[in-house]
Design a binder for these strands. Structure first.
Length: 856
RNA sequence: GGGCGAAUAGCUCAGUUGGUUAGAGCAUCCGGUUUACACCCGGAAGGUCGGGGGUUCGAGUCCCUCUUCGCCCA
C-alpha cells in the first residue's frame, strides 16, 4: 500500500532522513566483506579550525556521489571521516579564541581557566600542556559543528569511523611510520641551512613555500681591492657582514681579471674571494653579486658548491646576532655593534646610513619588487638559518627514488587525467628532502630523546628511539628506557627532542590511519590500498605527494588506485573564495534556503578539476528538480481519489507493458541507464546526472502528458501505461539517488521496502526486461505534440483549447511510426478531429498544421 | 621564463573518432489558474564558436601563431 502525502514538501527531509539513516545504520561499514567487495575512500580531513565554505560542500559532495554509486553497485563502501586538528591553524585559533599563548618554559597549571574576555593583544602565557588541553577542547567543539553540516548535506559517511589527525591512532601511526623511516635510513637529522619563519620561529618545508612580490630596493655598494672599487647590487645590504664571496658569471668579460683575487667588504673590512659561477646573471645589475650566509637559496647552493665559509649573522628570532662574529675585523666592530640585535629591517637602515657616511653607497637605492619566499601562513619573508632538523627522503636528493615516485603516480588513475602532470612536475622540481620537524607546540612529538654528555651537551648522532610498543609517546613527559625523570636535562642524562612533526607527516598517512595499519591487520587487508583519494588540486604537491612517498617507503605501493581532483568554487568574478577577500559563501545559509538536494545538484554540475563560479540562481534549478521528483512521483503513486494513477509496486511487471509508445519510452530509458552507468564508471558524475535529468524532464513534459489520459483507463492499454510508469519511476529514482538522496529516499519510502541507498543500481535486463521498441516513436509523438502546443501558443489560446483540424506531413516511415501512438497524441493535444496524413519524402521531421477551435 | 588548463548565446556549461541548419539550463520576451506540480506549464527570440593563418570536399572539433584569463612552478 502506498503512503503518499497529500502535499509533499522538501522542507524537513534532511532532518528526518539523516536521523533515520543514523538510526538504521544505513551507511555502516560491514567489515565482513572481502577486499574485492569493498570500495574504500580516503576522505580529506577538513581543517576544523577553519570554516567550511561552499567549496568544501561541493568537493565533499563529489566524493559522496561516487560513494553512493559504488554502494548501489553492490560495493561495501568504507567511507570514514576525519578532522584535521593537528598543527598551526589550531594553535592560532586557540590563541585568538582564548587570548593565550604557549610558553613551554612555564609549568603546568591544573587550575587554569581561560579568560572570559580574551584580549588577543595581551595574550596570557600558559604552559605547553595547558595550551594543548585548550587545543583539544576547542577542536572537539568545532568537529561537532562540522559533523552536523556534513550530516545535513547527506554525506553517506560511516560516522562510527571517525578519526582526528591529533588523536591517539594518528599519533601511533605517525610515530611508528617515522621510526620505521629512521630504521630504514629514510629519516635522518641534519644541521643545514633551513628556510625559517621568524614570526612563528619554525622551520618550513619546500611544499609550504609561497613566492610573493615583496617591495625592496637595489643598493649599489662598493667593495674594495685592486685598482678601483667593485660595485655590487644588493637588496639586502644588512647582510654585508655575512658576505662570503663576490660572484660573477665565468664568461663575464668585465670580471675576468678579478677571478681568483680578493676584495674587502665595506664597513667591516672582511676579505672575501671573487669567484665564478654560472648562476650569476650578467644581465642583472652590475653582473657581480655578493653571496652571504644566507640571503637566498642561491647563496645556499654557492655555499655548498664553492665550499664557502658559514658566516651566520641572522638568528632564529630574525634579528642580527648580538655577539660580534670573529671574522669581523677590528675596524669593523664598531659598525657591527650598530646593527647587533636589530631586526633585518632596522639593520638595513643603519647599514645604508653607514654606507652613506663612508661613501660606499653608489647613488640612491632604486625601489624594486622582488619575488621572495614566504611561509604560506606567514607575512614576513623567510630567512635561511642553519639548524638541526629531521628530514625524510622524498626524491629531492635521489634521482632513483624520484623516478620511482613518478612511476607510482603513473599507477594511479587520475580524474581528470591531466592533473597527473602537476604531480610529475612537482616531483621533478624538488631540490631537497622533506623537512619534517617543526618548532611548534600542538602537534605529534618526535618519539626521540638524546643522551647528554658529561658537560650536558646532547649527542645528536645517537638518538634514543622509542620502542614501537610504547607508542604514542610524549618524550617531554616520558623517559627513555633505562633513565629516570630526575636525569632529564642533567649531564649524563637525557633530553627530549623538543620538536613536533610537520602536520603533513601525519596527514600523509591517512590511508594507514583509517585502514588500521598495524592496529587492525584484518581491516587493513580489506581496505588498503584504497580505491579513491578525493582532494583539491591545490594540495597535490603536499597531501597527495607526501601520501605517495609514505606508502611507497612503507608498503612499496601507491596508496590508492584513483585520485579525483575537485576544482574550486570561485566567486562571480572568478576569484578564489577566501576569508580575506570577504567573498566566502556560508554553506548553512544556502542549505537552509534551497535544501541539501538542490545544493548537491549544483555541486554535481561542477566537473572534476574544473573551477566553478558560485551562482545562487543555479540552486533554484536543483530545487525545482527535487520538487518535480516529488510531484511526478506523487502523480504516479497516489490513489485515484487523490487524483493520482494509483500505480504501485504490484504494477512492476515488464510483461504488462504492451503499448508501442510505452515500450519506446522504456527502450530509451535503457540507453540512459547504459550511459549513466558508463559515465559513473569513469567518475564523470556530471554527465551521469545530465543524462538522467534530461530523460526525467522529457518523461514529465512529454511522455507523462501523452499517456496521462490512457493511464487512467481500466484496460490493458491503461495497465501498460501504469506499469511503464512505475518501471520508469523505479529506475529513475535510483539513477537520481546519488545526487538527490533525500527526495529519492522520501519517494522510495512511499512504496518500496528498505532504503533506496541500499537498493541496486538499475540493470536493464532486470529492471527493464520488456520487449524493445524504436525510441524514435516517443520523440516523434513528442515532436507532433510540441507542434500542436506551438500552434496554440502562437494563437495565444489556452493549451486546453481543442484542435479542430490537424494535418501531419512527414515521410511515410515517420507517419507510420507516429500513428502507433496517435491516440495518445490526439488526447494530449485535445484534437477533436480525425487527423490528415500527408506522405512527403522531402519533409524534415514533421510538419504539423493545427487549427485551434475558435473560443467564444 | 617553464608547465597545466580555459576562452562557444547576456550568465553557467554540453558539444564523442572532423560530417546536414552549433545544443541545454538560467535570465529575457510572449502566452496559459491544465485535477501531479504557479516552488507550475507551453512557446519564442538570442551565437562571426577569442583573433589570424593552415590541413581538408568539409573545422567549434586537427595543426601553427597571437591575445586574454586562471592555477602551479621558477
Amino acid at each position: 500500500m502506498n503512503t503518499v502525502p497529500e502535499k509533499p514538501v522538501l522542507e524537513g527531509l534532511e532532518a528526518t532522513w539523516s536521523a533515520r539513516w543514523a538510526e538504521l545504520g544505513t551507511y555502516t561499514f560491514d567489515r565482513t566483506k572481502t577486499r574485492d567487495q569493498i570500495y574504500s575512500i580516503d576522505t580529506p580531513p577538513p581543517t576544523v579550525s577553519g570554516s567550511l565554505h561552499v567549496g568544501h560542500v561541493f568537493s565533499y559532495t563529489h566524493t559522496d556521489l561516487i560513494a553512493r554509486y559504488q554502494r548501489m553497485r553492490g560495493k561495501e563502501v568504507f567511507y570514514p571521516m576525519g578532522w584535521d586538528d593537528n598543527g598551526l591553524p589550531t594553535e592560532r585559533r586557540v590563541q585568538n579564541f582564548y587570548g593565550v599563548r604557549c610558553d613551554p618554559s612555564l609549568p603546568y597549571d591544573a587550575d587554569f581557566i581561560p579568560p572570559e574576555k580574551p584580549d588577543a593583544k595581551r595574550q596570557i602565557p600558559i604552559s605547553r600542556r595547558n595550551f594543548v588541553e585548550l587545543c583539544n577542547e576547542l577542536v572537539e567543539e568545532d568537529e561537532k559543528v562540522f559533523e552536523q553540516l556534513w550530516r545535513t548535506l547527506g554525506l553517506s559517511v560511516d560516522w562510527s569511523q571517525q578519526y582526528t589527525t591529533i588523536g591517539n591512532a594518528s599519533q601511533v601511526v605517525s610515530q611508528r611510520a617515522f621510526l620505521r623511516n629512521v630504521a630504514r635510513g629514510e629519516a635522518y637529522q641534519q644541521d643545514a641551512p633551513t628556510l625559517w619563519d621568524v614570526t612563528y620561529q619554525t622551520a618550513v618545508a619546500q611544499a609550504e613555500l609561497e613566492a610573493r612580490e615583496y617591495p625592496g630596493a637595489y643598493h649599489r655598494v662598493a667593495f674594495h681591492g685592486g685598482d678601483s672599487p667593485v660595485i655590487i647590487e644588493t637588496t639586502r645590504p644588512e647582510l654585508i657582514a655575512a658576505c662570503v664571496a663576490l660572484i660573477a658569471h665565468p664568461d663575464d668579460e668585465r670580471y675576468q681579471s678579478l677571478f681568483g683575487t680578493t676584495v674587502t667588504s665595506p664597513l667591516y673590512g672582511v676579505e672575501v674571494p671573487v669567484v665564478a659561477h654560472t648562476l650569476a646573471d650578467p644581465e642583472k645589475g652590475s653582473g657581480i653579486v655578493m653571496s652571504c650566509t644566507f640571503g637566498d637559496l642561491t647563496d645556499v647552493q654557492w655555499w655548498r658548491e664553492l665550499q664557502l665559509p658559514n658566516r651566520t649573522i641572522i638568528g632564529r628570532d630574525g634579528r642580527v646576532l648580538r655577539e660580534t662574529p670573529e671574522w669581523i675585523t677590528a675596524d669593523g666592530v664598531g659598525r657591527y655593534e650598530e646593527i647587533a640585535g636589530k631586526t633585518t629591517f632596522s639593520a638595513r637602515e643603519a647599514v645604508v646610513a653607514a654606507l652613506r657616511e663612508t661613501g660606499d653607497l653608489d647613488g640612491e637605492p632604486t625601489p624594486t619588487q622582488r619575488m621572495a619566499n614566504f611561509y604560506e601562513r606567514g607575512d614576513k619573508p623567510l630567512e635561511i638559518v642553519s639548524t638541526r632538523q629531521w628530514y625524510i627522503t622524498n626524491g629531492g636528493r635521489d634521482a632513483d627514488l624520484r623516478s620511482k615516485l613518478v612511476a607510482r603516480g603513473d599507477e594511479i588513475d587520475w580524474v581528470p587525467a591531466y592533473m597527473q602532470s602537476r604531480l610529475t612536475n612537482w616531483i621533478e622540481g624538488l631540490n631537497g628532502d622533506w623537512l619534517v620537524s617543526r618548532q611548534r607546540f600542538f602537534g605529534i612529538p618526535f618519539p626521540v630523546w638524546y643522551r647528554l654528555d658529561a658537560d650536558g651537551e646532547p649527542d645528536y648522532d645517537d638518538p634514543i628511539l622509542a620502542d614501537e610498543a610504547s607508542l604514542p609517546v610524549d618524550p617531554s613527559s616520558e623517559v627513555p628506557p633505562g633513565f629516570t625523570e630526575s636525569q632529564r636535562g642533567e649531564p649524563g642524562g637525557f633530553l627530549a627532542d623538543p620538536d613536533v612533526l610537520d602536520t603533513w607527516a601525519t596527514s600523509s598517512l591517512t590511508p594507514q590511519i583509517i585502514c588500521g595499519w598495524e592496529r587492525d591487520p584484518d581491516l587493513f587487508e580489506r581496505t588498503f590500498p584504497m580505491d579513491l583519494r578525493p582532494q583539491g588540486h591545490d594540495i597535490i604537491r603536499t597531501w597527495l605527494f607526501s601520501s605517495i612517498v609514505r606508502a611507497h617507503l612503507e608498503h612499496g605501493v601507491a596508496p590508492w588506485t584513483h585520485a579525483a581532483l575537485s576544482g574550486f568554487v570561485v566567486d562571480p568574478d572568478r576569484k578564489k573564495m577566501s576569508k580575506s577577500k570577504g567573498n566566502v559563501v556560508v554553506p548553512d545559509e544556502i542549505l537552509d534556503k534551497y535544501g541539501a538536494d538542490a545544493v548537491r545538484w549544483r555541486a554535481a554540475g561542477a566537473r572534476p578539476g574544473a573551477d566553478s563560479p558560485f551562482d545562487e540562481a543555479q540552486m533554484k534549478v536543483g530545487r525545482r528538480l527535487a520538487m518535480k521528483v516529488l510531484n511526478a512521483s506523487k502523480f504516479v503513486l497516489a490513489s485515484e481519489e487523490a487524483y493520482g494513477l494509483g500505480a504501485g509496486a504490484s504494477d512492476l511487471d515488464p510483461s504488462r507493458v504492451t503499448e508501442a509508445i510505452d515500450l519506446a519510452m522504456l527502450s530509451r530509458l535503457r540507453l540512459v541507464v547504459d550511459e549513466a552507468t558508463a559515465r559513473f564508471e569513469e567518475y564523470d558524475y556530471a554527465t551521469a546526472l545530465e543524462v538522467a535529468e534530461k530523460f526525467f524532464w522529457d518523461f514529465c513534459d512529454d511522455y507523462l502528458e501523452l499517456v496521462k489520459e490512457r493511464s487512467r483507463r481500466d484496460d490493458a492499454a491503461g495497465q501498460s501505461a501504469r506499469s511503464a510508469f512505475v518501471l520508469a519511476l523505479s529506475v529513475q529514482l535510483r539513477l537520481l539517488a546519488p545526487f538527490l538522496p533525500y527526495v529519492t529516499e522520501e519517494v522510495w519510502s512511499w512504496w518500496q521496502e528498505g532504503s533506496i541507498h541500499r537498493s541496486t543500481w538499475p540493470v536493464n535486463d532486470v529492471d527493464l526486461a520488456t520487449d524493445r521498441h524504436d525510441p524514435a516513436l516517443l520523440s516523434s509523438a513528442a515532436s507532433v505534440l510540441a507542434d500542436i502546443r506551438g500552434a496554440k501558443s502562437t494563437a495565444k489560446v489556452s493549451q486546453k483549447t481543442e484542435i479542430s483540424n490537424l494535418t501531419i506531413s512527414a515521410t511515410k516511415a515517420r507517419l507510420d511510426l507516429v500513428r502507433l501512438a496517435i491516440g495518445d497524441v490526439l488526447a494530449a493535444g485535445r484534437v477533436v478531429a480525425e487527423p490528415t496524413y500527408v506522405a512527403d519524402e522531402t519533409v524534415d521531421g514533421f510538419a504539423v498544421e493545427a487549427t485551434p477551435a475558435l473560443v467564444d
